[in-house]
Amino acid sequence: MALTVFKKPEAMSKNITHYCPGCTHGVIHRLVAEALDELGLRERTVGIAPVGCAVLAYNYFTVDFQEAAHGRAPAMATGLKRTRPDLIVFTYQGDGDLASIGTAEIIHAANRGEKITVIFVNNAIYGMTGGQLAPTTMPGQVTTTSPQGRNVAEMGYPLRVADMLATLRTPAYIARTAVHTPQMVVQAKQCIKRAFDYQARGVCFSLVEVLSTCPTNWGIAPVESTAWLEQNMAPYFPIREYKRPEEA
């Protein structure tokens, strides 16, 4: 009899993702699904999809989903969780969505201590609209709306979301992780699972920022993109747990 050692998580659907080659959204989706399976939360979880590359995230999960307007996912999660406190509610947002148009919503959801989990995927660029400057775009990084590279004199420095939210007193769990190496995938899984576990235990707001690659819009090969992330993003966006409820 064959022994199953690897299978698709129950929380993932059979659909093939639309993501570009070398994009790590698919990996992060899988980690979320694994966490929900392992914690036994699938049947009471609702995801909130963003606007951006992950707008169709609901196609890849078997959990209930709502689709938000650009940046508003934390407000939607708030409305749902407050009225259905038994549900596990998570938002899945990119950097344009969360760190630009949705800054008010994320800060206040975090500061109110909404009992939700936020998966924040930071790939330093707008993906779906075709590679524009994001709040997290690196200094000097060329995008279609910063063709000479990000000029920090005009556009400031990249926004460190996890660091910023970690200054708030209310949120319980704030971490930054990445998925560009097998070791980091394992660590990211641990962070994501931890975040959902805190929510399941009624602990307030958790956010996991995941550094991600966008070879298509960075204009480099998938293999090179992991090195680019390691060399450019990782030093500026420290990979660490900022805040844990046990330390509060």
């Binding site: 609702v46 409305g79 549900l87």
Partner: peptide
Amino acid sequence: GVFLQGESEVAVGYMLFGAAAGGSKV
């Protein structure tokens, strides 16, 4: 019941959405 003062009417609109899509009268 739930009473919540949001950060803006923009956010309030989606709090309504989230709660209504969860089946609650809002």
